[in-house]
């Protein structure tokens, strides 16, 4: 038990220092009184440090375009669907990409973290081969599937921009 606690704290501290966006998320969750569950399964350990602390936009503000969503769906179908399912509900080895589980994993994190997770870890057998554009497109598709609205412009491939867009489940 003791070991669990100390390892957890060390790791959590390390993560929080590395990823300011996450730190914001933790503060936010903490304020709402929930356990820092999102942090425990944080995928953002690989995300580079955000250059600015300020989150300027949220996923409710139309951060991707319909055209991009189409490209993202096509990429999803050929790259992701065989494990995550054509309905995004997950499979034998793959987590759901819609609904409660998706939101549990990604709420209070940045869109940039999701893009970078996809880019660095997926597809899990041979990661690191997708282009930034493909990852932004797939992210647009995932945002749409989780009922975040489309807007007029594409989700940028620039992490400086996407790191400042917050994923939150409530408007």
């Amino acid at each position: 038990m003791k070991r669990v606690a100390s390892r957890w704290l060390m790791a959590a501290g390390g993560l929080a220092c590395l990823v300011p966006v996450l730190f914001l998320g933790l503060a936010r969750l903490g304020a709402e009184g929930s356990a820092p569950a999102a942090l425990a399964s944080a995928p953002a350990a690989d995300a580079p440090p955000a250059t600015k602390l300020a989150v300027t936009r949220s996923v409710w503000e139309g951060v991707y375009s319909k055209e991009q969503l189409g490209r993202g769906q096509k990429a999803y179908n050929s790259l992701c669907a065989r494990c995550h399912g054509d309905n995004l509900l997950g499979g034998e080895e793959a987590t759901p990409l819609v609904g409660k589980e998706f939101l549990k994993n990604w709420t209070a994190k940045s869109v940039g973290a999701l893009v970078e997770y996809t880019r660095k870890e997926m597809p899990s057998d041979g990661p690191g081969k997708l282009s930034r554009q493909q990852c932004a497109d797939v992210t647009a598709f995932l945002l749409s599937a989780n009922s975040f609205p489309a807007g007029s412009a594409d989700l940028a491939t620039d992490l400086e921009v996407t790191n400042q867009i917050l994923i939150n489940d409530k408007k």
């Binding site: 038990m1 957890w8 942090l39 425990a40 399964s41 944080a42 987590t95 994993n105 870890e121």
Partner: peptide, 17 residues
Amino acid sequence: AGGRGPAAPRGGAAPGG
């Protein structure tokens, strides 16, 4: 045993994983 365990080190974490 405490419910939540250690956060995974680099490369060891996945969303929902």
